[in-house]
Simulated scan of single mutants.
Amino acid sequence: METDQLISIDIFCRHYKVEYSFVQSLREVGLIDTVLVQETQYLQIPQLQNLERMIRLHDDLDVNLEGIEVVQHLLKRVEYMQDEIISLKNRLRLYESNE
């Protein structure tokens, strides 16, 4: 993995004023992935938007870790269904254009 797509968890926690243990808890339950490079844990930059959402759920709405898991699962299902709707609409257009 290219290091320009990584940010140290320590730097992330300082910037966002988040406890290191919270980020580790998210990693332990599988909500985020980290990369170990020379004994330092890093986050992948593409997952920062998702991580920011989890922080807002936790801090602003006081949602616990289990609640964050549920929200993430539901958001993934909604995204999957939206993709499926787009696919079905495209297929429907194909059939409608052949009439």
Rank of each mutant, 00 (worst) to 15 (best):
L75Q: 10
N50V: 05
Q49V: 08
Q44R: 11
N64M: 09
Q41H: 10
E84M: 08
V63H: 06
M81W: 00
V35I: 14
L31M: 11
Y16Q: 06
P46I: 02
S87T: 14
E84I: 04
K89Y: 13
C13L: 07
H15A: 13
I86Q: 07
C13S: 05
V78P: 00
Q5F: 01
V70I: 12
F12E: 00
L92N: 14
L74N: 03
I9W: 00
V71G: 02
L36A: 10
H15L: 12
L36H: 06
V18F: 04
R53T: 07
L88G: 11
V37H: 15
G30M: 10
E96I: 12
V18E: 07
R53N: 08
Q47F: 03
M1H: 07
I45T: 01
Q44P: 06
I55Q: 04
E39M: 15
S25Q: 15
D83N: 07
L51A: 05
L88V: 15
S21H: 10
T3E: 09
Y80I: 00
Q49Y: 06
I32D: 00
R27E: 13
I45C: 00
S87N: 14
L88N: 15
Q5L: 07
L65A: 07
L51W: 03
Q72M: 11
L36W: 08
P46K: 01
N90F: 10
E69D: 11
L74S: 03
I85G: 00
V35K: 02
D33E: 07
R53D: 09
P46Y: 01
D60K: 14
L26T: 04
G30W: 09
I68V: 14
L88A: 15
R77F: 00
R14C: 05
K76F: 02
T34Q: 03
V71T: 04
L75K: 05
N50H: 04
L6N: 08
I45L: 01
Q82H: 03
S25E: 14
I32L: 07
V71Q: 01
V70E: 06
Q72C: 13
Q44M: 14
D4P: 02
Q49T: 11
S21D: 11
L43Q: 02
L57D: 09
Q38M: 13
M54E: 02
C13V: 05
E96C: 14
E52G: 04
E2L: 04
D59M: 12
E69T: 10
